[in-house]
Nucleic acid binder design. Structure first.
Length: 611
RNA sequence: GGGCACGUAGCUCAGCUAGGAUUAGAGCGUCGGACUUCUAAUCCGACGGCCGUGGGUUCAAAUCCCACCGUGCUCGCCA
C-alpha cells in the first residue's frame, strides 16, 4: 500500500516541478520511507528541496514550504493526513484511513497482495542443475532454494516463468565413470545404493589420477584421461551398451533428486538435462551453423573455437546494448592470440559444455522466450559472459540473458571437493536441523504425540534451511558453519515461524469472526498497533526490490522485521481481552497472519499451527 | 598479472541499486532483568562501531567516483 502513496506523491511532485520549470522534475523517486514514529518525521518524506536549492537559489526550507503549499493546493491525498516541513524536509503523515485501507486490501486480496499483473515477459528460468551420479550438496542447496524463491518472486512480479532443471548429465566425466564402472563390475552394490556407489567410483577415479600425477607418471595420466575421452566419445556417438548404462545412472540419480526436492518443496516444469540437446541434435546444428558461417575457426589440432574478444563482453546480457564483433570484421591471421577461445568442438569431435549451452540457447530461443535466466555460481561469471557473446555471434541477438550469480559456499577445512570427499549433502543438513528441532520440541511440550512432534520438526527444519539460504545478499561468499546453519535461535526461520504461529493462535483462540476493517476503524490503535500495520503496508515495496536485485534476500529481511515487530506487539498489547480495541486488533492480527502466509508461500517456509 | 565479487560491533550479517534529518541497525556471544497472561523457540536493558585505508564529488557520503590494501573466485578441448 505504501507504494500507492509513494507513486501518488511522486506524480504530484513531478507535476508541480514541471509547473515551476525545474530540471529536477526528472529526478527519479526521491521519496524516503521512514520508520513510523509518533512525532517528528513523516512515514513518507522527501529531501528534494535540498536538491532544488542551488537551481532556484533559495534556502531549502523556503522551497520546502512552497512545495508543501503546492501539494496542499492540489487537494487532499487519500491516506495522507498532514503535510509538514521540517529543516528542508517535507513530511507526509499518514492517517487512520491509510491503516484501514491497508488492512482491507490484505484481507481482500490474500495471497494476491503485492502481486502485480503480468509484464508479458516470458522467461526460461534455469536453477539447481545438479550433476547426475552425485548427491546434492550444500552448494546445490543454496542454488536450489535461492532459485526457487527468486522464481516465486519473479512470478509474483508478473513474469511468465518456465522452471528448468538443467541437469549435468553429459560430458567426459561420464566417460570416466562408465570406464570405472565397467572395471569394478559390482552391480549388486549399484542396485543397493546407486548414488553412493557412483560417488565412490567417481572418487576412485580422482584418487587414481592424483596418484599418477604425484608419482610423475605423466604418460599414464594421459592414458587414463584418453580412456575416459574414448568412452565419452563412444557414448556421444550412440554406443548402445554405454547408453543403456548411462540411462541407469541417470534414472537412479533422478529418483534420488526427486526425494531431496520433495523434502525441500521444490518443483520444476521441465528437466531438460544437457543430454537432451545432444540427443535431439541441437548440438550438431550449432556446430554446423558455427562452422559453415565461419563463426568458429579450426585450430591446428582440429578443434573448432569461437574467438571471443574483450569488448565483445561489454553489456553482453542486454540485447539493446550488446555489440559483438562478427568475424567479417576480424582478420584472424592478424590478431590471433588476442582472444579467448570458446570451444565448439574438441579435437576428437565431441561436444563440450559450451557447445551444449549454445545448443540450449538455440532450443530456448525457438521456444520463444524473451529472457533466459541462469542461476549459477559466480565462479562461472566469465564463462557465461563468453557464452552469451558466442550466442550473439551465432545470431541470437534479440534475447535478454541474465546470469544470476551468487557467492560460493566453502567449508571450514577448505573449498568443497566431491573428489576429495570434502562435501556435506543437502540431506545431511536437513537431517541435522530436524534433529535439533526435534529436541527443542520435546523440551517445550511433552504432551505432543510423536507424529505431531515429527511434523513440527520437519517444518522447522525446512524453515531454517530455506531462510538461511536466502537471508544473505546473494553475492556474498559463505563458509558453511554447521553450528550456525543448524541454529534455531536469533535471526532464523524458526524465529519468523514462531511469530506467525503466535499470530495464528490468537485467531484460533478467538471465538468471534474477524470484522470488516472499516466497521471497527474508530477503535484506538497505539504505537505498537501502528508499527505493525505500517510493516504490512511495506510488503509490495519489498517484492519490488527483490525483483530489481534478482535477490530474495530483502524478503527474508522483511520477514525478520515483521516478526520482530509482531513479537513486540504481542508482548505489549492484548488482543482478545483488550478493553477498547479487541475487534480492530483482531483485524490487524488476521491481516498479519495473511501477510505471513503470503510471504511464506513465496519463500517456501512452512506455516506451523503449533511449535 | 587481467577480470569479477566481497571488506560495517569479538563473530555472522542488514543498510549501498536511486546519497539526506548530529540516534549506523539486527542476531550470536557476555552481563542483568521479565512467564498466575492470546505459546518464554518470546520480550526488555547494558556492554560493544575512525562503516578496510587515503583522496575526490556534494549543502550532505557507510552509500557515488578514483587510487591503494586485504580476502575469495576466475583466466581448462572439466562443468
Amino acid at each position: 500500500m505504501l507504494q500507492v502513496l509513494r507513486d501518488h506523491i511522486i506524480e504530484d511532485m513531478t507535476t508541480i516541478l514541471e509547473e515551476w520549470g525545474c530540471a529536477a522534475a526528472t529526478t527519479t523517486d526521491p521519496i524516503e520511507i521512514n520508520e513510523y514514529t509518533d512525532a517528528g518525521k513523516g512515514l513518507l518524506a522527501t529531501p528534494i528541496a535540498f536538491q532544488l536549492a542551488s537551481e532556484l537559489g533559495r534556502p531549502p526550507a523556503d522551497i520546502a514550504a512552497d512545495l508543501a503549499d503546492a501539494f496542499r493546493d492540489r487537494g487532499p491525498i487519500e491516506g495522507i493526513d498532514t503535510i509538514e516541513t521540517a529543516g528542508g524536509y517535507i513530511n507526509f503523515h499518514i492517517d487512520e484511513t491509510f491503516t484501514t485501507q491497508t488492512l482491507e486490501r490484505i484481507l481482500d486480496e490474500g495471497s494476491e497482495y503485492g502481486v502485480v499483473e503480468g509484464t508479458g515477459t516470458s522467461a526460461l528460468f534455469e536453477f539447481s542443475s545438479p550433476n547426475i551420479a552425485k548427491p546434492l550438496h550444500i552448494g546445490h542447496l543454496r542454488n536450489t532454494v535461492l532459485g526457487d524463491v527468486l522464481g516465486n518472486v519473479l512470478a509474483a512480479r508478473g513474469y511468465d516463468l518456465v522452471r528448468d532443471n538443467h541437469i549435468g548429465d553429459w560430458g567426459v566425466q561420464f566417460g570416466h565413470l562408465l570406464y570405472e564402472f565397467e572395471q569394478a563390475e559390482d552391480t549388486e552394490r549399484f542396485e543397493a545404493e546407486p548414488i553412493d556407489y557412483l560417488l565412490e567410483l567417481y572418487q576412485r577415479y580422482g584418487r587414481h589420477e592424483t596418484e599418477l600425477e604425484e608419482s610423475g607418471r605423466e604418460a599414464d595420466v594421459e592414458q587414463l584421461r584418453d580412456t575416459g575421452r574414448e568412452y565419452f566419445a563412444a557414448l556421444e556417438s550412440g554406443d548402445a551398451e554405454l547408453r543403456a548404462l548411462w540411462e541407469r545412472f541417470s534414472d537412479a540419480s533422478r529418483s534420488r533428486f526427486d526425494a531431496t526436492y520433495d523434502r525441500l518443496g521444490v518443483d520444476f516444469d521441465t528437466w531438460h538435462g544437457e543430454s537432451f540437446y545432444v540427443t535431439e541434435s541441437w548440438t550438431s546444428q550449432i556446430r554446423e551453423t558455427a562452422i559453415d558461417n565461419g563463426i568458429a575457426i579450426e585450430t591446428d589440432d582440429g578443434a573448432y573455437v569461437v574467438p571471443i574478444y574483450d569488448d565483445d563482453l561489454t553489456n553482453v546480457e542486454d540485447p539493446e546494448q550488446a555489440d559483438v564483433r562478427t568475424d567479417a570484421d576480424i582478420d584472424l591471421d592478424e590478431d590471433d592470440g588476442d582472444y579467448e577461445a570458446f570451444v565448439i568442438t574438441k579435437r576428437d569431435g565431441t561436444t563440450t559444455y559450451g557447445t551444449r549451452d549454445l545448443a540450449t540457447i538455440a532450443y530456448r530461443v525457438e521456444q520463444g522466450y524473451d529472457e533466459l535466466l541462469y542461476v549459477v555460481g559466480s565462479e562461472q561469471r566469465e564463462y557465461f559472459q563468453q557464452l552469451f557473446a558466442a550466442a550473439r555471434k551465432l545470431g541470437y541477438t534479440d534475447i535478454q540473458f541474465t546470469h544470476v550469480d551468487y557467492g560460493l559456499i566453502d567449508l571450514p577445512e577448505g573449498s568443497m571437493s566431491t573428489r576429495a570427499g570434502r562435501l556435506i549433502t543437502a540431506e545431511d543438513v536437513l537431517d541435522r536441523v530436524r534433529e535439533n528441532a526435534r529436541s527443542v520440541v520435546e523440551e517445550n511440550d511433552l504432551t505432543l504425540d510423536e507424529e505431531t512432534a515429527d511434523e513440527i520438526a520437519d517444518g522447522v527444519a525446512l524453515g531454517t534451511v530455506r531462510f538461511e539460504n536466502i537471508a544473505k545478499r546473494r553475492t556474498k561468499n559463505t563458509t558453511f558453519d554447521t553450528e550456525q546453519a543448524t541454529s534455531l535461535e536469533g535471526d532464523t526461520g524458526p524465529y519468523v515461524q514462531y511469530a506467525a504461529t503466535r499470530a495464528w493462535n490468537i485467531l484460533h483462540e478467538a471465538d468471534t469472526d474477524v470484522s470488516e476493517p472499516s466497521a471497527v476503524a474508530d477503535q484506538p490503535f497505539n504505537e505498537f498497533d501502528h508499527q505493525l500495520a505500517v510493516r504490512l503496508a511495506r510488503y509490495p515495496l519489498v517484492l519490488e526490490r527483490c525483483e530489481e536485485r534478482y535477490d530474495p534476500a530483502p524478503l527474508a529481511q522483511y520477514l525478520l522485521d515483521l516478526a520482530r515487530t509482531f513479537n513486540k506487539f504481542y508482548h505489549e498489547n492484548r488482543v482478545l481481552d483488550a478493553e477498547q480495541s479487541r475487534e480492530r486488533r483482531l483485524v490487524l492480527v488476521a491481516a498479519t497472519v495473511e501477510m505471513f502466509e503470503t510471504a511464506f508461500e513465496i519463500t517456501g517456509i512452512p506455516m506451523l499451527k503449533r511449535m
